[in-house]
Amino acid sequence: MKVLINKVKNLIKLLSILALITFVTTHSNSAESAKLLKTDWSFKGLFGKFDRGALQRGYQVYTEVCASCHSMKYVSYRNLGEKGGPEFTEAEVKAIAASFEVTDGPNADGEMFVRPAKLSDKFVMPYENVKAAQAANGGAYPPDMSVLVKARGGGVDYIYSLLQGYEDAPSGMTLDEGVHYNKYMYGNKIMMSAPLSDDILEYGDGTKATVEQMSKDVTTFLMWAAEPHLESRHQMGFKAIIYLIILTILVYFSMKKIWSRVKSEV
């Protein structure tokens, strides 16, 4: 009995050190100014999955609002139809791709030419390069959105909050031309003007396009863009851990049997 208690004690010690390490790392990673807004994300947790509707609406927000400045250069049109994503039908994805134009070439005459995008193409970028993007946006580069959620401390909660964090600057704070106040932004100053406003677009599925709704949808979409394999990761993880627990139990009893041959506590 005493041995067991000691064992449990040791395990608790070990786990608390582990927890401390995790805490220190995450704590240091997300030094924010304001407390972030929270919402119920469907993709969190052991069995977390994306809300298909939110992903499709989020894609709409991204193309109609964000994509005019923000690129998403690591995502391809084919991804939109893949399992675990927005899961548009093949016809829908083909239509989406065909609505964009990409420059291809050179052809047999050595000329570049423009053609409709194919499934295998990456999302078309709003600007040719970083410099062009900066020039068009008052010197600030609108960051690429492919992994944006993972590139910000606070992740989805941060993006979700930022989109709703536009306010009038507190008195005493002077903002330069083209700079906006956002209570969740690092330093509270942001070059992007408030991108969303109620009913800025009309959802295909009839959902009311409030700022909150759009923020949630587009953030869900960005999460998927950053982690396209999140669903299979969760599913595989659950199986892997159940498997490991079963094997651990089997090995534990095998160990007990083997050690019963010598007079000793394991």
Partner: peptide, 21 residues
């Protein structure tokens, strides 16, 4: 088992967000 929890459920928690820029 501990390893698997990190890999499958919080793979980026020990990393730093800035490294995705």
């Amino acid at each position: 088992i501990v390893f698997a929890f990190f890999v499958f459920y919080s793979p980026n928690i020990l990393g730093h967000a800035d490294n995705y820029i």
